[in-house]
Structures are given as C-alpha cells and as structure tokens.
Design a protein around this nucleic acid. Structure first.
Length: 301
DNA sequence: TTCCAGGAGAGAG
DNA sequence: CTCTCTCATGGA
C-alpha cells in the first residue's frame, strides 16, 4: 500500500470518468484499472491518494510514475485560470475542478482511439476488455482479476478474424495494420514521443484508421500535447452551440478555439466535453447567457 | 425500424 | 478544398 499525500487540485473521479481512458472501473469509491502491465487500485480521501498495485513496486520509481500518469505534477490551476475566459467556462472548471488529463501508455492509447471511431464509450470499453482477456496477460489484485492490454506483437500476430470476434468490427484491419507497423519498426513509438505536436500528429495520421480526431486524442491523452484539440461530434456541437452560434467546419472551430483558449486548448476542451455530459441542460438559455459574461470578478473557489 | 456513438476512407464535384 | 456515402456493432 502506497500513500501520496498533499495531492491538491485533483479529482480522481473526474479524471478517470471523463472518457479519456477506457480501462477504469469504480467499485464503491475505489477505482480499479490496468496501467502498463499491473492492476492499480486508487482511492482518494481528500488530499490523500491510497494506491495498491498487483506488482511489487519500487517506491522510488512508483510514486513518480503515478505522478506522471495522473498528471499531478502539472500546475493545472494555472492552466484553468488561463482558459476560464467566460462565466460558462468558469462554471465548468468549478464543477469539475481537479480533473486532469492522463499521460497514458502510447500503444494502448493508439489502439484504443483507433477503436473509438464511430463508436460509443460503453462499446469501446467492451472491445478493449475482450481484446485484453483474449490476448493480454491475466493479473490479480486480491480477488480482483483483469488483463493487461495486449502488446503490439500479440495483436500483430492475431488473425483479423480473431480481432473481429472481439467486436472491433471494420476497425480490425486498422488495428492489425498499426500493430504490424510498430513491430516492423515502420512506426516508432519512441520517435513519436520525441516529436513536436505537429510532427507527431502528422506521423500518426499516415496510418490507416487514424484521422485528425484520433491523432489529436493520442497527442493529448498520451503525448502530453495540450495544444491538441480532438473535435468529435460533441466538441463540434459545443463550439457551434455555445461560441460560434452557427454551423462551422472543423477548421473554423480549431481556429476559434485556439485563439480563444490558447496553447492549453486541449485542457479547456476536456472540461467542456465532460461538463456537457454531466449537465443535460448544458445548452439551455441560462447557460447560453453565461458565454457573454466575463469570468473576471466572479467569486473565487 | 431507425438513429446514434470521443470518425475515417474513398470518391465525386 | 468540401460534400456524401459507407463501414460493424449494440443500445435506445
């Protein structure tokens, strides 16, 4: 059992339940998930994080690993104040205060968001769970059983029909192709991690099944590029409804969002994305009226 | 039954 | 460049 003390401006719930990872399961107030080959059990009590692992961890490495994965080291309050330009964002950041963008393992993030296209979160989770059960390694933490995310090698050797049987649908060939490209060295994960946002995005988009949105998800949720802006149906809807007040192309949304929120637009996007999922009345008249109101001068937290 | 989901590829204009 | 059609799946 590991404890991390003085974790401030952090919400485990919103971080793990905001659609950036498909691997976490809440049981009571604890979260179970698999991260880089081990089961983790995470429980937040105020500013203390209780952690259990299925592996014998070296404390000196484990705590920094957790800090990085959960993005605890980042000055998120500074980012949020910087993107809190209006009363709407003020409300969103207040409700979800402490939500952070994870730094997830690169291959799992690539594979997961290839599978996410034209799909819903519930089904994506099911596909990833079945792929892990079928091609990953069995792990246990007490009575809890889960499976590691299968390696590129394991998925590259799997028959596409076997991937298909896990429910991947037409995405099976995309997943297989990219796994094979990584095994062959045609696509280098370590190179991707050294590239700028623009370079990494461009390199990712060369793969079949990775378009602009999926590439941006990988850049944001694994590579730490906060300028990445994944535009899915919801983000498009949010910007068209709240800010632009008209039908807009992806290019127009991207230009507006970057000008309005700045270099940490990815963080702003995540708060908006999750806020509208938490608030069914996100687009009612009272909410819309908040957009013109500046955040400055509103009550602090 | 049709529509939708953290879309992308292919083709047409 | 933009628009449209299709892709496999399951829940609403």
């Amino acid at each position: 059992m590991t404890q991390i003390q003085n974790v401030t401006d952090f919400s485990l719930k919103y971080t793990l339940e905001s659609g950036q990872s498909f691997r976490w399961e809440r049981i009571d107030n604890a979260y179970y998930g698999v991260v880089e080959g081990r089961i983790l059990k995470l429980l937040q009590e105020g500013t203390t994080l209780h952690v259990e692992s299925s592996t014998d961890e070296n404390e000196a490495d484990f705590v920094p690993f957790l800090h990085h994965y959960l993005d605890i080291v980042r000055d998120v309050p500074h980012i949020l104040i910087g993107v809190r330009n209006d009363a709407y964002m003020h409300r969103a950041t207040k409700k979800l205060w402490g939500m952070r963008i994870l730094n997830q393992e690169l291959w799992e993030t690539i594979a997961s968001f290839i599978l996410s296209q034209n799909n819903n979160v519930r089904r994506i989770r099911g596909i990833i769970r079945r792929l892990s059960e079928r091609f990953g390694e069995r792990l246990t933490l007490g009575a809890y059983v889960d499976y590691s995310f299968p390696s590129p090698d394991a998925l590259s050797r799997a028959a596409e029909s076997a991937l298909f049987a896990c429910g991947t649908g037409y995405r099976a060939s995309y997943l297989s192709d990219t796994a094979q490209a990584i095994v062959s060295g045609e696509l280098s994960l370590t190179s991707l991690q050294q590239m700028s946002y623009t370079e990494a995005k461009q390199e990712l988009m060369r793969r079949k099944g990775i378009g602009e949105k999926v590439a941006d998800c990988i850049c944001l949720f694994s590579l730490g590029h906060l300028a990445a802006l994944p535009i899915d149906v919801w983000v498009k809807r949010i910007f068209e409804t709240l800010y632009l007040r008209r039908r807009a192309t992806h290019r127009e949304i991207r230009e507006f969002a970057y000008n309005y929120f700045g270099e940490s637009v990815g963080y702003a996007q995540q708060y908006l994305f999750h806020y509208v999922h938490e608030c069914p009345n996100w687009a009612d008249a009272e909410h819309l009226s908040l957009i013109e109101m500046k955040s400055a001068g509103l009550t602090q937290f």
